[in-house]
Amino acid sequence: MAQNFWKSSHAQQWMFDKTEIWKQRGEDMKVYSEEEYNRLNIFWPNFITAVATECAHSQANVGVKLRQQVIATAIVYFKRFYLRQSFRDMCPFLVASTALFLACKVEEHTSLSVSSFLKNTSLVLPKRWGVPFETNSTKNGVVYDSEFILVEILDCCLVVHHPFRPMIEFLDDFRQFSLCASGTNTPVKDTDAIEAQCQKVANDSLRCDVGLIFPPHIVALSSIIVAMELMGRGEELEGWLVEVDVDLEKVTDCVDQIYKMYNLWKSFDEKEEVKKLMAKLPKPNSPIVHQQQQPSTSNNYF
């Protein structure tokens, strides 16, 4: 896994330091403060997850459920796209739907109705966030057109290395270490609950920039540390962490960023604040958008 990662486009083209990330977001930072953008970093993954859930429940996709890895890949595509483009360049709602559509292909997931991605985009905003949204575009071609642009902006770098696999390997190693250290062959308690909490934290980490800064094994180990601390069992990791061959300085930085995201999320009243953030969202000037827009007094983004 590690060898494959370090030779991948993910490692060679899509890892940055914090300063570089905010510099690349310069155009959007003329509109939003850093704290507002961090709130958007929480909102967009929530929005993509909501669209994925609606797609799975829609009549056109009865019985189909998107795997979490598909959703995670779509979120990474979205975040990468807006490192190289601004919200003004292309409608983020369209990019979000297209990222999900593309992620289904790349992760070899069951095919979903193309039109459902667009339709459910206009459903989840008023349903969950109370933001009015209308689209005049119901044609499947708009997704195919934007898919071409998305792939181009991503430099065809579509394979994403997530922290889920190294996290499982770390947890297995921790369980083996605990067995040997106890000398009684007593397994770690509640291993299923620990793994579920670690998976949740890893998923939540998509709501900050750690996936753009650190390699997957650092995010994985950080997710385990945060998860165990949230469960009140952080001290159980102390002996094992000393034995793990990783850069603990990077792990500490990653853990701090995850906690900062959680603290911001706690104070983020999405129902109210998303309306204000969306009111500041620049109107896109993408050629695709112009082809689809019709004169209207409502907020037509497609």
Rank of each mutant, 00 (worst) to 15 (best):
S146R: 15
E34A: 06
A196P: 08
Q13E: 09
P282G: 10
L241K: 14
Q13R: 15
K280E: 02
M167S: 06
V51L: 06
K105E: 04
L118C: 03
S116F: 00
V160A: 03
A193W: 10
N203R: 15
P216Q: 10
S223N: 06
E249S: 13
G130P: 13
R128Y: 15
Q292R: 15
L179W: 11
F148W: 12
C198R: 13
R88K: 15
K189V: 00
F117P: 07
V62S: 09
A279G: 11
L102S: 10
D245G: 08
Q68I: 00
D209H: 12
C208P: 01
K127G: 05
H109F: 02
A103D: 11
P45Q: 12
D209S: 12
L221K: 11
A72K: 10
S115Q: 11
T49K: 15
S286V: 01
I21R: 14
V244R: 14
L206A: 08
L212N: 09
I258P: 02
L123N: 15
C198V: 01
S8T: 02
H290A: 05
D28P: 11
V244A: 01
Q199H: 13
S286W: 14
A196I: 00
K105C: 00
V114D: 08
F101Y: 14
D247C: 11
F87K: 10
Q294M: 07
Q85H: 14
M90Y: 10
A52E: 04
